[in-house]
Computed example of a mutant assay.
Amino acid sequence: MELRHLEYFLMVSKELHFTKAAEELGISQPTLSHQIKILEQEVGYPLFNRVGKKIELTKVGEIVQQEALNVQGSLQSMTSQITAFTKAEIGELKIAVLPGEITDLVSTLCIHFNRLYPNMKVIIQTTDEVEQAVLENQADFGIGFHFDQLDRLQVTKLYEEAFYLISSQNDRRKKVPFETIFDNPIILFPDRHQCRKILDKTSSEMGRQLVPIVETSSIEAILNLVRNGVGHSVVSRTLYEFYDTEDLFFQHIEKPALTRNVYLAMKKNCFVNHSARKYLKLLIQEIERLRFHIEEKEIALLQNALS
C-alpha cells in the first residue's frame, strides 16, 4: 500500500465524486479510478458504493478513511517536529477560535507575536466548529468554551471570566443583580454571539426575555452607544480589557453570577510546533497579566509541556 493511494482515496472520500477528486489531484479520472481499484484489491473489500453517478463510503471505507486521516496527521506531525527541531524563525501558525471576544484576544496578541517573529505567518480561523478544525488538523490549537471529544483532545482550562454590566453613569454599586439588566434600554450582540446566548439562556430561566433597543455585532458600536447614553450593555471581561473603556462604568453581575470558562484544545499525542509554542507562551503571559482567574495546576502543566 502506497501513500499516494491513501492520498487519492482521501480526496475521493472528501469529494464523493471521482471527476472532481481527479481535478483536485491534477490527474485523469481513469487513472484515479485505477488507483482506487488497486487499493480496494489490497484491502480486500470495496471502499465505495457506486449508485449511478453518485458514490458513498462503505463501512470498510469508513474504517480506511479514519486510519488514513491518522496516517496523514502523523506525517504532518513528523514534518512539524522536524521544522521545530531546526528552530527556524519561520513557519505558519493556525488557530481556530469561536466568533466573538475570544477572537479579539487572539488577534490582539498577534500584534505582539508579529513584532517578535515577523517571518511567521498567522492564520486565525473564526468558526463555530473549533473542535472539528483541531481534529482535522486545520488548526494547531483551538480556543473555545466547551469541547466534547476528550478522548481525542487534550483540553486545558485557561481561565474563568465574568460578565460586566457597563453604562455611562456610575450609581456607585460594585455588584448588581441580573434583573438590573431589564431596568434600562439595553444594547446587545446578535443572538448568534456567544455572550448573547448566555444572556438569553439566563433570562429564559428567569421567565424573562431580553429585547435590545439596538443589536449589533460591532463592539466599537456597542461601546459608543453606551458612551452616548443610548442604553447599557453586558460584555465579557475579555472585551472590557481589550478596548478603551476608561470612561465607562462597570458592575459585576450576580444572582445569578455570569461566568464562563475558556479552554485551549489540542490534538492528543500531537507535537506542538515551534510557532504554536511561542504564541501560547505569550497567551499565558497575557492571561496572567490581566489577572484572570486561572487554574494554576493546569496552566503549570501546559507551561511544562511547552518548555
Rank of each mutant, 00 (worst) to 15 (best):
M1Q: 09
M1E: 10
E2K: 12
E2M: 05
R4E: 11
H5I: 01
H5W: 13
E7N: 09
Y8C: 13
Y8A: 12
M11K: 14
E15P: 04
H17R: 09
H17P: 04
L25G: 01
G26W: 05
G26Y: 06
Q29A: 14
P30N: 15
T31A: 14
T31L: 08
I36R: 09
I38F: 04
Q41C: 02
E42F: 06
V43S: 06
G44M: 13
V51F: 08
G52A: 06
G52Y: 03
I55L: 05
I55K: 07
V64S: 09
V64I: 15
E67A: 03
N70M: 14
V71P: 00
Q72W: 05
S74F: 13
L75S: 03
L75K: 07
S77K: 14
T79N: 12
T79A: 15
T79Y: 13
I82R: 11
F85R: 09
E89R: 14
G91L: 10
L93M: 12
A96P: 08
V97M: 01
P99L: 08
I102E: 07
S107Q: 13
I111A: 07
R115C: 03
P118M: 02
M120D: 12
I123N: 11
T126A: 09
L135C: 03
A139I: 01
A139P: 07
D140L: 10
G142D: 07
G142Y: 02
G144N: 02
D148F: 08
D151R: 05
R152W: 02
Q154G: 01
V155S: 00
V155D: 00
K157P: 00
E160H: 02
E160L: 00
L165I: 09
L165S: 08
S167K: 14
S167T: 12
S167V: 03
D171R: 14
K174M: 02
I181N: 01
F182L: 09
D191Y: 13
Q194F: 04
Q194E: 03
I198Y: 04
I198F: 03
T202H: 05
S204P: 00
E205D: 13
E205W: 03
R208H: 07
L210M: 10
P212W: 03
P212Y: 06
S217M: 06
I219R: 07
E220L: 14
A221Q: 08
A221G: 00
L223Y: 05
L225R: 02
V226S: 09
V226R: 05
S233G: 02
S236K: 06
R237K: 13
T238Y: 11
Y240W: 15
Y243H: 15
D244K: 12
D244F: 09
T245H: 10
T245A: 12
L248M: 13
L248V: 13
H252T: 08
R260V: 02
L264Q: 08
M266I: 11
K267C: 03
N269W: 05
C270G: 00
C270W: 02
F271W: 10
F271K: 04
H274P: 03
R277I: 10
R277C: 12
K278V: 05
K281R: 12
Q285D: 13
E286Q: 15
E288R: 15
E288W: 01
R289G: 08
L290R: 14
E295H: 12
E296K: 07
E296F: 00
I299W: 00
L301Q: 14
L302E: 11
L302R: 11
Q303E: 15
L306W: 09
L306D: 08
